[in-house]
Amino acid sequence: MKALKNSWTTFGLAFLIMAIFMLFIVTLKGQHFLIFSFICLITSMLPFYWRFETRDIRAREIIFIAVLAAIAAVTRVPFAPLPSVQPTSFVIIVSALVLGPESGFIVGSTAAIVSNMFLGQGPWTPWQMFCWGMMGVTAGLISRHQWAQNKYLLCIFGFFWGFIFGWIMNLWYFVAYVNPLTIKTFIAAYVASFYFDLAHALSNVFFIFFFYQSWYRIISRFKVKYGLLAEDE
């Protein structure tokens, strides 16, 4: 119960920081929007990193998270010939369902930063870290409910995240460089990227539908067998 409360506190803190900076952006009326959007993004991730850093963590647990993050990053390689089919999101969602929101965030954001270390860093790196990290957080938060074991509901969850991921990733360059921000702007940006987002969403559904159960079993077996990252103490 204590763990549950803690992770909600972290989540709330991140949300609060984000809201404050959003307010800042609005009061500045779009001036210096670009720079504040980056600051907002980076500071909203800090509570999660702080939680990870202050946690008393064993070598086994660090390595466990590292393996999952590396698997998520590596899956981009064998699937490169298949356009837009990348199980990275799937790996992150399943890991978070087993390990909870905080570890889910760390798996997602580490996968993003490490895969970009090999593919080249760019202005998109913090956005990817944020998206995949948040994907982990939300998956971890729903994992406490019974209905999260339902494969069909998880498919819907994955489908929505496919689109949300694409939408947030569009923000970094489109919304930042096109002025002003109207509903029309957003719709144009999202229509332009619809095909890619749909592919991402459908591949999430595909992977969750066929592989969710076996991956969930594998990861939870290791978690139980080695007594890793037990949340309720």
């Binding site: 990193y49 990870f52 660090i62 390595i63 590292a66 993050a69 590396a70 990053a73 590596v74 580490t110």
Partner: peptide
């Protein structure tokens, strides 16, 4: 801790490939 985690993950990528 985070740096150690990132380092290990980075080392795993070529190994896993």
């Amino acid at each position: 801790q985070l740096t150690l985690l990132t380092m290990i993950t980075m080392r795993f990528v070529p190994l896993f490939i």
